[in-house]
Nucleic acid binder design. Structure first.
Lengths: 232, 232
DNA sequence: TCAAAAGTGTTCAAGATACACCCATGA
DNA sequence: TCATGGGTGTATCTTGAACACTTTTGA
């Protein structure tokens, strides 16, 4: 253990941060969760949610912890997006930042904003300038979201629990920023055969009401294990 | 500058390494460049090419530098793949590793092995066990390569310069590990309209000889800028 | 002259797209 | 009763998949 320690010690160490691109979906719009930075530099400016990795946690754990601390949300779908390591990306010192991308289910949407840290959902259409390279991270996150959406039923992550076909369609329209034909959309989604149609209806947006659906997690996992690739 | 420095200093720092998954293509096979580790722990075991990030370089720069130092190759296509940060992934201490994926053009293939560091090309079919989580990294790199290959003319990175249709097809067959119909393959590739057919022939593999092609970089960039998505 | 790889078109099936009307309901 | 959003089927086009023979040439 001595030789290696010595060899490792010849090399520098760095602060490692995690920044999360948190997408949500509300009122027909795709949104991003941001807040005003609590510390210098750039205190008070718009920023992604982030924080420093600690000694006893993995990167994934750090991302989850920070999301929980700042929004109270747990068990959120997160995945690593990209690591940013330009020498001068942070004016206050060398920080290597691992960007994560996360999807907040609609039902937890409002809870996320009740935090003490001033979390705010902003529409992606009018995203303000963010600190440092955070706008670059968001652009990359959006690209990933779009790609994911074409090959995985990612929509279900954003709409956990019960949802209606028109809601699911609106979500995909928000992601692609284009309109879809509702007959073709239904056909494709139902052809995947991973939805359970419920007896209940959602009447919040029409007199007739739209049937609730639920995502059949077990069926989905079976298909994926069997090598099935979703295309939406 | 004082407040922030103080805030940053409350947080731990980490060794940050770069490990490269280097793909090459030779004799109809997809290969990976590895070597025997030069230092403890796990000295002498098979490992990806890697090293520690230094103070004055970005992650991308570190990856390029390390590739150059260990193989003498420059200007190689590299992109970040994923960052690995499990607490105990390195038995000798906490190291966060950024995995890169790289494609070595066929014509530089043999030069890569002439290094003093014992670089060796191994077929992906019989990959030996690698140290730590390097096998996981390779698996992820392979998935990325396959996906990239379906949506970008990545083959041209691996076959830089002049190549023939049969060579290009062999490359895609190696990536997908399945056989392709040569008529359909030609049709698709030529439909992309980014290849220049040359007058010369490669006669190394048949009496008749196969025409050389070259990738039309400018045409390709124009198409991509115009939003075109390649599908192979 | 023949062996060995290069080169070439057409048919068919499946999947994607375009498109218009009836239904249920509460106000 | 009517305005509003929910729900449904068919025809057409596009795309990918399957498939066999001719050409060139050096040995």
């Amino acid at each position: 253990m001595k030789i290696e320690k010595q060899y490792y010690k010849e090399h520098p160490t760095f602060h490692v941060a995690v920044d999360s691109i948190i997408f949500g979906f509300d009122q027909g719009e795709l949104k991003l969760l941001i807040h005003k930075r609590q510390f210098e530099p750039a205190k008070g400016e718009w920023s992604l949610f982030g924080g420093f990795v600690q000694k006893d946690e993995s990167l994934d754990e750090a991302a989850s912890r920070i999301l929980f601390e700042l929004t109270g949300l747990n068990n959120i779908y997160m995945e690593e997006l990209q690591t940013y390591g330009e020498v001068d990306r942070d004016p206050a010192g060398r920080v290597i930042s691992v960007a994560y991308y996360a999807l907040i289910p609609a039902k937890e949407f409002s809870e996320a904003t009740s935090s003490q840290y001033g979390a705010t959902w902003v529409s992606l259409k009018d995203l303000p300038p963010l600190i440092m390279d955070h706008n670059v991270m968001v652009a990359k996150g959006l690209r990933r979201l779009k790609r994911r959406a074409t090959s995985q039923p990612i929509g279900f992550e954003l709409l956990q629990g019960e949802f209606t076909m028109p809601q699911l369609q609106a979500l995909y329209e928000a992601i692609y920023q284009s309109e879809l034909d509702k007959r073709n959309f239904r056909k494709k989604i139902l052809a995947m055969d991973v939805l359970i149609k419920l007896e209940t209806k959602d009447k919040s947006s029409s007199r007739k009401g739209a049937f609730h659906y639920r995502f059949d997690q077990k069926k989905y996992e079976k298909l994926v294990d069997g090598g099935y690739i979703f295309t939406i």
